[in-house]
């Protein structure tokens, strides 16, 4: 039997081996007690573990995550926001769905202003529903783990919805500036950004689903009022107001934002 060298065992322990080498060494370790003893008792093992601890304690952080932490977002929330695009297929699907919605809405209103009402009604929630459908792969173990985690479930859905809305708005603005004839398609994504931010902020104070019901109710009431006044598209001015409200609530309740009580769904 050929035993792995100490350098190879060290590489295995410190994650520096290639996948093939790691699998080969692991297979060897199953049947070789002397190498297992070597790994567990060797002086150099302690050094390897020290290196490993350094790796564990300093996980690679993306620039967005570092930026979010710098502006005061709690560490774990910043990680969840920054990690959203790591689930690439779902993230791109969500962003694409949001952009398609904005494009269709902008086109429909241009040709028929009365057509704005159905789009305005669903504007705050449609991107979040898209996120839920894109990320919520039935039977996926990661989805199931997230669903029962204190900061998973509905709260995670809102965090991802916020990320998707913000990214979609940025892309829509860029498209309007550089690639397409000037249009304001991005404005159709502002209600969802505002509503999601407001729901997240209010969820500091109440259960997240209750916060969502409050925000959607306010939106529908204001939309009804502007429709009766004959100018439903005035509802767009409500988006920034909701956003300001959300930020104000977040600042006031910021000290409690790491409490998991809001994640009760």
């Amino acid at each position: 039997m050929t035993h792995p060298s100490r350098a190879e065992l060290r590489g295995y322990l410190t994650s520096e081996s290639s996948d093939f080498e790691a699998d080969t060494i692991e297979h060897h370790l199953v049947g070789c007690s002397s190498c297992r003893v070597e790994i567990r008792d060797g002086e150099w093992t302690n050094r390897s573990w020290r290196q490993l601890r350094t790796t564990i304690r300093t996980p690679p952080r993306s620039r967005p995550e570092r930026t979010l932490v710098t502006v005061g977002i709690p560490n774990h929330i910043a990680h969840l926001i920054a990690a959203s695009p790591a689930f690439r297929p779902a993230w791109w699907l969500s962003v694409a769905a949001a952009l398609v919605f904005a494009g269709i809405a902008a086109g429909a209103v241009t040709t028929n202003p009365l057509a704005s009402l159905p789009f305005l009604t669903v504007a705050p929630v449609l991107p979040v529903i898209g996120v839920a459908l894109a990320y919520g792969i039935p039977g996926d173990p990661l989805t199931q783990i997230a669903a029962v985690a204190p900061h998973g479930g509905f709260r995670l859905l809102l965090i991802r919805g916020l990320t998707v809305s913000a990214s979609s708005i940025a892309l829509a603005v860029l498209a309007a500036l550089f690639f397409l004839p000037p249009n304001a398609a991005f404005i159709w994504l502002i209600p969802s950004l505002a509503a999601t931010a407001a729901t997240l902020a209010l969820s500091i104070r109440m259960a997240a689903p209750v916060a969502a019901i409050v925000v959607v109710t306010i939106w529908i009431m204001l939309l009804g009022a502007t429709t009766i006044a004959g100018t439903p598209t005035d509802a767009f001015t409500i988006g920034p107001h909701l956003l300001v409200l959300a930020i104000a609530v977040a600042i006031v309740g910021g000290a409690r934002n790491s409490a998991p009580s809001s994640a009760a769904t």
Binding site: L80, A86, P141, A146, A149
Partner: peptide, 20 residues
């Protein structure tokens, strides 16, 4: 089949973040 591009270390940090 945990279908994620996250590395093992990133995955564990991700779940730790989900747990707050």
């Amino acid at each position: 089949d945990l279908d994620t591009r996250l590395s093992v270390l990133q995955f564990l940090h991700h779940v730790a973040a989900l747990k707050g």
